[in-house]
Write a protein that binds this DNA or RNA. Structure first.
Ligand SMILES: [Mn+2]
Ligand SMILES: [Mn+2]
Ligand SMILES: [Mn+2]
Ligand SMILES: [Mn+2]
Lengths: 218, 218
DNA sequence: AATAATTTTTAGACTTATCTAAATTAATAT
DNA sequence: ATATTAATTTAGATAAGTCTAAAAATTATT
């Protein structure tokens, strides 16, 4: 069974390899985890012996298939807990990361899947990051949060992340429902809100609302 | 900040001193935690230096005030998580302990209190064990689960642990509400169910129902 | 291609938590 | 009161994870 430290290393390697592609350097991992390069070297040797990563001295590391799917599983747990904390315990967006950083290490497959069901199988976390399903598959990339819709492009609402009645009621008021056509007209920098078109009618929505609406590009 | 190991030791000491009163022996702790007496001795020295326990060599240990209230806090977390797992994630009674054993170590006062509120400030966990409040006070002992009402004695329903609509509806059908007079007539060993009187009318309830109804003795 | 700068690894030390085996203290029985 | 037994502590090892400082390898620069 993986230690908490080992899990954090795997997650860091996943994050860095997703960002920069190819193999990940010792220094990059050290920086990501606020530790020293020498500690990373030690750990890489260990993870490599256990076949979680491919490691050639001085050449950087990459995840094995086994390592990759485990790292994805930790990310899944992290993001599901964040959904719980924000949607059900009323935490603010900026308060949940550190707690999820701990909760992601709780070991119980049943717990993860029951939590997933309880949350209604969300596809994105409160920060708009995609949540892999039980099989480790990320939601189809065609669905993105409204808040990340490219300028000028049009999209169709395909899902809603949050299931709070008050939120759904508010969407109703905004005339947003599954299937609505949407488009971002302008981003207001100072509060991250958006001037938008909903079914060709001009409207205005906050970032908090936009990130909870999933769009498929047209 | 306490390590997970230290927290488990404090909790074990609390549990043993609640059961047997007075000071707790090295061997008792070792057995409770499935470890060796020598490991316990080492840890006692450490906890004592940090003022979590009173420790005199060969004389056993007891919690300091600080140690006691911290241990109670861990118990609080453990039991609140158990309520969440059973009432909201549909875990069975026997499946939650090991998971709560991990969750109890998550560090965030805000999390505990928000969870408490989300669960509606329950007084007992799914096993019928009392849950201390934020101040570390256990629910007044006059309230006990129906399932622990002594034979022949009568009691009054003062609270309901579970807040599931389906459960409340079922209580309604059984004619049980706050203030109802209840009495246990007989315990059916093979399924732990009870023959009872509710407002002097004979009825039958399962253990699962009985443990979620809080009684104050008349 | 040789040198300098940077990155990475190794060597050695430290902390936490655990163990086995031996020594010590306390409790019990003669 | 001694001797025996049981409980507890100490001594010495080990494993995980981290660190600093030094050595080695790689990369960049002249
Ligand atoms: Mn973490
Ligand atoms: Mn997130
Ligand atoms: Mn525990
Ligand atoms: Mn319990």
């Amino acid at each position: 069974m993986l230690s908490q430290a080992e899990e954090n290393y795997l997650k860091a390697i996943l994050k860095l390899s997703q960002k920069n592609g190819q193999s990940v350097s010792t220094n990059a991992i050290a920086e990501e985890l606020n530790t020293k390069a020498s500690s990373v070297s030690d750990m890489m040797k260990k993870l490599s012996e256990k076949s979680w990563i491919h490691y050639v001295k001085y050449q950087g590391v990459s995840l094995t298939e086994k390592g990759h799917s485990f790292a994805v599983h930790i990310v899944r747990k992290h993001r599901l807990w964040e959904v719980f904390l924000v949607n059900h315990l009323n935490f603010k967006l900026d308060e949940v990361h550190d707690i999820a950083e701990q909760l992601e290490h709780i070991k119980s497959l049943e717990l993860v899947n029951k939590l997933d069901a309880f949350l209604n199988f969300p596809s994105f976390d409160p920060h708009g990051d995609p949540i892999p399903n039980e099989e480790g598959e990320f939601p189809k990339s065609s669905a993105i949060p409204f808040s990340e819709l490219p300028m000028k492009s049009r999209g169709k609402v395909v899902a809603v992340v949050m299931d709070e009645p008050s939120f759904l009621k508010y969407l109703d008021k905004l005339n947003i429902s599954i299937g609505s056509q949407v488009e971002i007209i302008e981003v207001n920098e100072f509060d991250d809100s958006f001037d938008v078109k909903i079914n060709d009618k001009q409207s205005h929505i906050s970032f908090d609302v936009a990130k909870n609406i999933l769009i498929s590009l047209l």
